[in-house]
Design a protein around this nucleic acid. Structure first.
Length: 131
DNA sequence: TTGCTGACCGACG
DNA sequence: CCGTCGGCCAGCA
């Protein structure tokens, strides 16, 4: 787990950040989502918490709604709810698309539920380390 | 401009 | 145990 304590976590991929302008909430969501390593999954709440607003978890899901229109690829399939349930699967092309992606990364999914969810869980707070 | 909605989460009863 | 409600931010009628 928390092996590297790089504090440069705050240094998100510099590009969208403008003069005196901080990244929008949903833009941050995309950044964090892209940082999710293959074979790993996280929850909306975890991302929201990392952004500093766990209560804004709804916004995270909403942001994912626009994830597909983003020019940059966003692994939305690696983001599930707190229960490890593929709540947003319906927003992919097909109903099983999200599951297909996860299984392709070695994650077993049964009944829209990720097996050993906590084992595949990727916590941005720890992996990215906030210090 | 006001108000509703949304791929959620946590608290209450 | 299960249903309900409030809350956060941003987009759209």
């Amino acid at each position: 787990m928390q092996k590297n304590k790089t504090r440069q976590v705050n240094s998100f991929p510099p590009h969208s950040e403008g003069a005196g302008g901080e990244l929008s909430f949903y833009e941050k969501v995309y950044e964090v989502a892209r940082l999710i390593p293959p074979g790993r999954v996280t929850s909306y709440g975890a991302i929201a918490a990392y952004l500093g607003s766990v209560q804004s978890s709804r916004m995270v899901g909403w942001a994912m709604n626009n994830a597909h229109i983003q020019e940059r690829y966003v692994p939305a399939h690696r983001v599930v709810n707190r229960n490890g349930l593929l709540t947003g699967k319906h927003h992919f092309g097909t109903s099983n698309a999200m599951q297909e992606y996860l299984e392709a990364e070695g994650i077993r999914v049964i009944d829209d539920q990720i097996c050993d969810f906590e084992k595949h869980f990727w916590n941005p707070m720890i992996e990215l380390d906030m210090d």
